[in-house]
């Protein structure tokens, strides 16, 4: 019991002593400060209107507040209440930490769920059959979301552009890969057809003796397959997708470059384009006027 009461009163005594010491230190300082202002801080206006300087006024108010505060804090009841509050601190920290960790765990769960979804999607898209197309779909539906997380802070616009460029690059790469795959298909097919054709000729005992003939047969088959491909809607779609992806990536790349150029003493494309447009319109007007003469 004795120990407990001692533990309880010790901080109170310590705090009261500290308050006393602080007041004893700051009191003479305050006195010196006001004395200094009485001699030097008086402006013509303050003399005229009998006002004290603003600095001294603020200092006096602060001093009075401190005195009132230290008086209240010296009361044992106040200290006891305060220390009770301090005892609650670890509990508050614990609760905060628990909330934080719960959020983190939830976030992790969501990530795991997303990863699970990726696996599911990968199965749905039948990767073996149409790998490049599947990857594009997978990227667009699952990965792309992460590039759209809102950016915060002073540099958010720049961050957004960087992230957008990464996203557009991925889309462009996917489109180019798919497009290249389509372009290689006639090659693949032409060799298959050539083999079939050669087997057919061999069966008829009509194989050409000239090796150049084999090349001519193959190039004709290849040309035919390309013509079939180029007229297909699949190819036109892939072509347009690639062109659009290339334009979009190129545009965002230029935006980033423009940001860097803005820091240098050189005109940007946008500024030059504005100027070119003005020159173009002016020239056109002059030419029209000249023709009317």
């Amino acid at each position: 019991m004795t120990d407990k009461s001692q533990e309880k009163t010790e901080p109170e005594t310590f705090f009261a002593d500290w308050m006393k010491m602080a007041t004893e230190l700051w009191d003479p300082m305050a006195w010196m400060w006001s004395a200094f202002h009485k001699t030097t801080g008086m402006t013509p206006d303050s003399i005229k209107y009998g006002k004290r300087p603003r600095m001294q006024e603020s200092w006096d108010t602060a001093q009075k507040t401190w005195q009132a505060f230290s008086q209240v804090m010296s009361e044992p009841e106040t200290m006891e209440t305060l220390l009770k509050g301090a005892g609650m601190l670890p509990e508050i920290f614990l609760k905060t930490a628990q909330t934080g960790s719960k959020t983190f765990v939830n976030f992790q769960k969501q990530w795991l769920k997303r990863t699970g979804k990726l696996q599911e999607s990968a199965k749905t898209y039948n990767l073996e059959k149409d790998a490049f197309k599947a990857w594009t779909q997978l990227y667009e539906q699952e990965f792309r979301k992460f590039f759209k997380i809102p950016q915060l802070g002073l540099t958010r616009f720049y961050q957004e552009k960087m992230i957008r460029s990464m996203d557009k690059f991925n889309i462009y790469q996917a489109a180019v890969t798919e497009f290249s795959r389509l372009l290689l298909l006639p090659m693949e097919k032409s060799f298959q057809v050539l083999q079939e054709k050669l087997t057919e000729l061999a069966d008829k005992e009509d194989l050409p003796e000239d090796s150049k003939k084999y090349y001519q047969i193959w190039i004709k088959i290849l040309e035919g397959h390309y013509m079939i491909l180029f007229q297909s809607s699949e190819y036109t779609q892939a072509l347009n997708k690639t062109l659009n992806a290339m334009s979009e990536f190129s545009a965002v790349k230029k935006e980033i470059l423009q940001d860097f150029l803005n820091m240098l003493p050189v005109p940007t494309h946008k500024e030059m384009d504005d100027l070119y447009k003005e020159i173009y319109l002016l020239k056109k007007r002059i030419k029209e006027l000249e023709k009317k003469k």
Partner: peptide, 30 residues
Amino acid sequence: DMDVDQIVDTYGNIPGDILNLAFLLLNPAR
């Protein structure tokens, strides 16, 4: 079906190399 607006807005002028590539792709075998 070409999105000509996007291409022109991006490149300003249409690069000759892109046009050339398009012409080559008209008959890559030959």
